[in-house]
Simulated scan of single mutants.
Amino acid sequence: MDIVYTIWLRSMKRYIRSKSRIVGSIAMPLFLLVFLGFGLNSVVSTTTLGQQYVLFLVPGMVAMSVLFTSVFSGIQIIWDKQFGFLKETLVAPVSRLEIMFGQTVGGASTAVFQGILLMVFAVFLGLRVTSPLHFLIALGFMILVGIAFTAFGIAIASRMEDMTGFSLISNFVVFPLFGLSGALFPINSIPAWLKPLTLIDPLTYGVEGIRYGLTGTSPINPVISAVVIAGFAVAMTIVGAWLFRKVTV
């Protein structure tokens, strides 16, 4: 476990020292939350949502912050390849599985921290978490989303050699996942032909789990959301570990 802790600590130190990364990761979700939320607040029907649109957006923007930070933490693998750090790590007397777990936990931790920062800003926009238990539920779903998509990012990065290709492929996958997740619209009011695509999107269950924790309501049972996103996290961790074991430097 020492190697897992060491790699986690390295990821956290790099994150804390990179102020531009912190600001850049939270800027877009916060921008969408403020301008899209207040811009459409008087247009979107509160009867359908049961709350103001800006508050409906909060769980989706929190999930967005965790999602993008998680996936793009995988680029650290490519960075380490190019600068030789990964080679030095792989020749050390530790298993590749421990190295991958360390990278996953480190990326997920930074992603969850980003999500918590956004929640703090959302409090000033009117977010009120009903109880400490509901906050812990939201935090649990954020952790599951962070682990799942950090492992997803590592899986992609393990097969890539340059950062440009990683960014293109990640965006090609991540934006549809986010767009179909119900982060920007209620899934119980979408067209019938679109609903199956939304329900097979694993991020949908992460968004709705976070929504249940922050607002106390969700069209999907939180137990079902927890089972699906946890299963996806386990599956992606296994796939990421398998692909990382095949990395050559």
Rank of each mutant, 00 (worst) to 15 (best):
K81V: 01
F124I: 08
I3P: 06
G84M: 09
L40N: 09
S45H: 03
P219L: 02
M163R: 13
P59D: 07
V173P: 03
A155Q: 06
A241I: 08
A151T: 04
E208H: 14
R245G: 07
A226P: 10
F149D: 01
L117E: 09
M160N: 00
D162F: 03
I220E: 05
T217A: 11
K19L: 13
K87Y: 08
V227F: 13
F85W: 14
I220Y: 10
G60L: 00
L243P: 01
K195I: 04
F72L: 08
G140A: 03
I3A: 13
I16L: 15
G24F: 10
S45D: 13
V58F: 03
P196L: 09
G213H: 08
V239I: 15
S95K: 14
L144E: 02
T104I: 09
A138W: 05
M100F: 13
G60N: 07
I156Y: 01
V227G: 10
F149C: 00
D201W: 00
L194K: 05
W8Y: 14
A138R: 04
R17G: 09
G102I: 04
I156R: 05
P93I: 05
A108G: 01
R245K: 15
K246Y: 06
T104K: 04
L57K: 06
R17H: 08
L177E: 02
M1A: 13
R128D: 09
F185L: 02
L55W: 02
L86M: 14
M119L: 14
T69H: 02
I156E: 04
V247E: 02
F101C: 12
L180F: 15
G126Q: 10
F172C: 09
I137C: 05
S42H: 12
A148D: 00
R96I: 06
